[in-house]
Nucleic acid binder design. Structure first.
Length: 640
RNA sequence: GCUCACGUAGCUCAGCAGGUAGAGCACAUCCUUGGUAAGGAUGAGGUCACCGGUUCAAGCCCGGUCGUGAGCUCCA
């Protein structure tokens, strides 16, 4: 028997007989390791635990904790669900069933609508299949064999896939488990028993075959599975928690904003408390920009349609624009972008290299046509305000400018409680404007800035926009969800189209580099993210009402009014509750409204000229003088 | 836009072989002046999203419109 040499991640090597499987090796190391493992990685290829190893190489055992292990576990779980579906609904045709971020789904074609009531039946069937512990068997088929097999089983979607695969000359493999066989590249867990019973079907929704709306709509069943009951519970709890934090729900409960049929889809009404928060965010934003060398500009909501022809938006952005309106026989266009206006301000005079960099910032409200089906609360709307800015600079200044933007960005995000993010650098796509050299120069500048800032980033090759490379930053909220807010894009297109230039030392006109950037993205969307991130428990500086005075009986009203007045003089946002209600009731309402400080005033307080302080979520803080309260609050503000 | 589901009082929801609406909260008035998360009584409030159809009769059935929700490749 031939021997093979296997190296492990810790650097140790060991010799095995050729044909040994990763599972056998795992068992040799420890039973618990073998139990934990769901797949293996051999020479950087993910393989099944039962695939015999025939050559020397590096072997890593994968458990559910590894991303690749998760994928295998969930992919096998998708097969498990598919098998159950076929048992319960033999006429169902299977589409695709991949692992996704938090589980997996399977697309099926079935005349009858699957409902949540069916979930239990399917889950029971899945549990049965797990108990039956069918080994998963990989088989290589020729295209013809595969086509015959799936045609015979009336799996026309699979036939569709096979035809595609055959055209690309790929090897066609099928995985069998018991009576069930599915077209699949694999690998999978060795048997259905590995999958355990901590799975749950979550939802069902329509999805087009191949994601193309010209194709048939299938039913997509989302589900998840965990090797451990605790993990499943955690996951379900996270879903619950996300529901509780839903900004649409909190937005109504806290009276922050509304969206109304009479107004129109995707158009936001900011109520007093929401508008106040928006004002706080905007003021902070403007201050920061002024402190960092930006000039504030302000531009109209409409402009002649012609402007958008110059910018090129009528070409590549038409689909997202509202239809033009005619005024005095001239077409005007509601703005989907702020850029052309900023370009025109730049162009309003001759610029010298001495003027650069020029930074125009604007909280500019834009209107974009979004398909009705994609609108979602504050997250996806038709009218929103971008925290926009355009920086015009000399090519030599590019890196420094990007660094400036990155610095400002991380400061600003931290102010709102976001300190973790994923950074992506997108490079030149196939279709692009500008010269190859300028793309290279700009991409290098972005890269250099990221590296000088010691930021970890991932390169998305070819994912840049046609007009320039970009850096995208996705922030992570407390629930670990990612939101893309900040984007920093170099633009080679608009300076060209608007013929922007500056006079350089040589007395000649040159094209400035233009950076287009947004940090919060859209105020509406960012507000939505903030609501969910804080679950409505906003930091003190953002709380629309920071304190409420709660007198116990009406004989305390005078002192209450006095206290309120003093707190307002100190710059706090204070309300009072003078209703004819018990203090317990008033406290409850203040807690529900998530007001940070409750100031209770009764006989004792009036007599000793003190305040009883209660903090939201913390309870009674005891009695203190007004001065002490202000100091306490000052300390909180200093920390923020 | 498409598929499925949903649309009943300001909010959350009940309602039924099709027989012309109900609760809690919120709101108003009154009683209660109460010490750290819901005091009590009374009352007002609905063209059951909108339009059309079937029927003696429609919140409920059918069709359309509008709106909302879950989703619409993370490629076997």
């Amino acid at each position: 028997m031939a021997q093979i040499e296997i190296r492990f991640p810790d650097g140790n090597t060991q010799t095995f007989e050729s044909g040994t499987t990763p599972l056998e090796i795992a068992k040799g190391i420890s039973n618990s390791l073998a139990k934990r493992s769901v797949a293996a990685k051999f020479n950087d290829v993910v393989i099944s635990l039962v695939q015999p190893l025939q050559e020397d190489g590096v072997l890593q055992l994968l458990s559910f904790k590894d991303d690749e292990g998760k994928d295998v576990f969930w992919h096998s779980s998708a097969h498990l669900m598919a098998q159950a579906i076929k048992r319960v609904f033999p006429e169902a045709q299977l589409g695709i069933g991949p692992p996704i971020a938090d589980g997996f789904y399977y697309d099926i074609d079935l005349d009858r609508a699957i409902t949540p009531e069916d979930f239990e039946t399917l889950e029971q069937e899945m549990a049965k299949i797990v108990e039956e512990n069918h080994p998963t068997v990989r088989k290589v088929l020729s295209a013809k064999e595969a086509l015959d097999f799936f045609k015979k089983n009336h799996e026309m979607l699979k036939v569709d896939l096979i035809e595609e695969l055959a055209q690309n000359g790929e090897t066609i493999t099928v995985y069998e488990q018991g009576e069930f066989a599915d077209l699949c590249r694999g690998p999978h867990v060795p048997s259905t028993g590995y999958l355990g019973k901590n799975f749950k079907l979550l939802s069902v929704a329509g999805a087009y075959w191949h994601g193309d709306e010209k194709n048939k709509m299938l039913q997509r069943i989302y589900a998840t599975n965990y090797p451990d009951k605790k993990l499943l519970k955690q996951h379900l709890k996270r879903i619950e928690e996300a529901k509780k934090r839903d900004h649409r729900k909190l937005g109504r409960e806290l009276d922050l904003f509304s969206i109304q049929d009479e107004i129109g889809s995707g158009l936001i009404l900011w109520h007093p408390k929401g508008a106040l928060m928006r004002h706080l965010i905007e003021s902070y934003w403007k201050d920061e920009h002024l402190k960092n060398g930006y000039d504030l500009v302000s531009t109209p909501h409409v402009a002649k349609h012609h402007l958008w022809e110059t910018s090129g938006h009528t070409g590549f952005y038409q689909e997202n624009m509202f239809r033009p309106m005619t005024v005095d026989d001239v077409d005007y266009q509601l703005k989907p972008m702020n850029c052309p206006f900023h370009m025109m301000i730049y162009k309003s005079q001759i610029r010298s290299y001495r003027d650069l960099p020029i930074r125009f910032a604007e909280l500019g409200t834009v209107y974009r046509y979004e398909r009705s089906g994609v609108l979602h609360g504050l997250m996806r709307v038709r009218g929103f305000t971008q925290d926009d800015a355009h920086i015009y600079c000399h090519p030599d200044q590019l890196t420094d400018e990007i660094i400036g933007v990155l610095d400002l960005n991380s400061r600003m995000l931290a102010k709102f409680g976001f300190t973790e993010y994923d950074v992506y650098l997108s490079t030149r796509p196939d279709k692009f404007v500008g010269s190859q050299e300028s793309w290279e120069h700009a991409t290098e500048a972005l890269r250099k800035a990221l590296e000088l800032k010691n930021m970890n980033y991932q390169v998305d090759p070819g994912e840049g926009v046609f007009y320039g490379p970009k850096i995208d930053i996705k922030i992570k909220d407390v629930l670990g969800r990612s939101w893309q807010c900040s984007t920093i894009q170099v633009d080679f297109n608009l300076p060209e189209r608007f013929d922007l230039n500056f006079v350089d030392v040589d007395g000649q006109r040159h094209r400035p580099i233009t950076i287009h950037r947004a940090l919060l993205g859209s105020l509406e969307r960012f507000f939505g993210i903030l609501i969910e991130h804080y679950a409505g428990n906003f930091p003190f500086w953002l709380a629309p009402v920071q304190a409420i005075v709660l007198p116990i009986a009406d004989r305390h009203f005078d002192y209450a009014a006095e206290v309120k007045q003093q707190l307002m003089q100190a710059g706090l946002r204070v309300n009072s509750d003078l209703r004819n209600e018990k203090v317990g009731f008033k406290i409850r309402e203040a807690e529900v409204a998530k007001i940070p400080f409750m100031i209770i005033i009764g006989d004792k307080e009036v007599e000793t000229q003190t305040l009883s302080i209660r903090h939201k979520g913390e309870g009674d803080l005891g009695v203190m003088k007004l001065k002490q309260l202000l100091e306490h609050i000052q300390a909180i503000q200093d920390k923020e």
